[in-house]
């Protein structure tokens, strides 16, 4: 399936900051097509366990596609085909026998727009447990409290746990979605531009939250906002037109990029 336009390791420059707990995800020669249109060209990258990895790049560069490939969210799109491998702890997630549901339980996801379900705050948070059929009331309550505290929403929400989640503000809703994502106790947290629909104050809170959660979870965050990437991430991957151009230590990427394209992008010459 690899086409001529996707040379293996298409000239990506690497200078990755290593974590002390090894790697968790290994993306190898990953290509993706929406129908006839190719969106990803031979992406090769490893994600360090416990670190925050940011994906940056101009619109349409394939960063969201790459992120959504990691928990197979792209499966929902008709006519999507892939080649290459993604391994999570040495298990190929695109193996035909792989359990997609189990995979998604290991990978929490936060979306661009807050998408709380039309239920109470409590039910929203414990949704992953409900899905698993957990009925133990104490466990549910403890999980809800722990997750909401982790997502820094507990103080605001504790008195209205059983009111509709739709009554929360946008920023609160997004933190609720983060609480929901971590309630299922995942290993990896995928964030797809989690702050793009939020005001600056809410954005700051979510960024603080990412900081607090790093270490505990491996976080991969897609962002348009380069300052945000610089603030919250350990490693940054710069993508352009479906190719991974440069992947490495965030400080290096922003202060001393090795690639000309990266430099042009981070200095604001295009994008």
């Amino acid at each position: 399936m690899t086409s001529a336009s996707t040379p293996a390791n298409g000239g990506t420059i690497y200078h990755v900051k290593k974590g002390d707990r090894g790697t968790i995800l290994d993306i190898a020669e990953f290509c993706l097509w929406y129908g006839a249109a190719q969106a990803l060209f031979g992406v090769e990258m490893v994600v360090e366990r416990g670190l925050v990895t940011a994906l940056i790049g101009p619109s349409g560069c394939g960063k969201s596609t790459l992120l959504r490939s990691l928990n197979r969210m792209n499966d929902l799109i008709d006519g999507m085909t892939i080649s290459g491998n993604v391994t999570l702890d040495n298990n190929n997630i695109y193996d035909p026998r792989a359990d997609v549901i189990a995979l998604r339980k290991r990978m929490g996801m936060v979306f661009q727009k807050p998408n709380p379900f039309p239920m109470s705050i409590f039910e929203n948070v414990i949704y992953p447990l409900r899905v698993d059929g957990v009925r133990n009331k104490r466990l549910l309550e403890e999980t809800a409290e722990r997750s909401l505290k982790s997502a820094a929403l507990w103080d605001e929400a504790k008195d209205r746990l059983h009111q509709s989640a739709l009554g929360l503000s946008g920023g609160q809703q997004q933190r609720l979605c983060i609480a929901r994502a971590i309630a299922g106790d995942p290993e990896v947290l995928l964030m797809d531009e989690p702050c793009s629909a939020l005001d600056p104050i809410s954005t700051a809170r979510v960024e603080e939250l990412i900081d607090e959660l790093s270490g505990q979870y491996t976080i991969i965050i897609v962002t348009h906002n380069m300052q945000q990437a610089a603030r919250v991430s350990d490693n940054t991957a710069f993508m352009y037109l479906g190719k991974l151009i440069e992947y490495g230590d965030t400080d290096e990427i922003f202060t001393n990029p090795k690639s000309r394209q990266t430099q042009d992008y981070v200095t604001g010459r295009f994008g």
């Binding site: 929902l76 189990a102 979306f111 727009k113 379900f117 949704y127 409900r130 899905v131 698993d132 299922g184």
Partner: peptide
């Protein structure tokens, strides 16, 4: 976004539909 949110939580298709 509703369906994706549910599926991303590890719900099956059937659970997503019914819940």
């Amino acid at each position: 976004s509703m369906r994706e949110g549910s599926l991303a939580c590890g719900a099956s298709k059937w659970q997503t539909i019914t819940r």
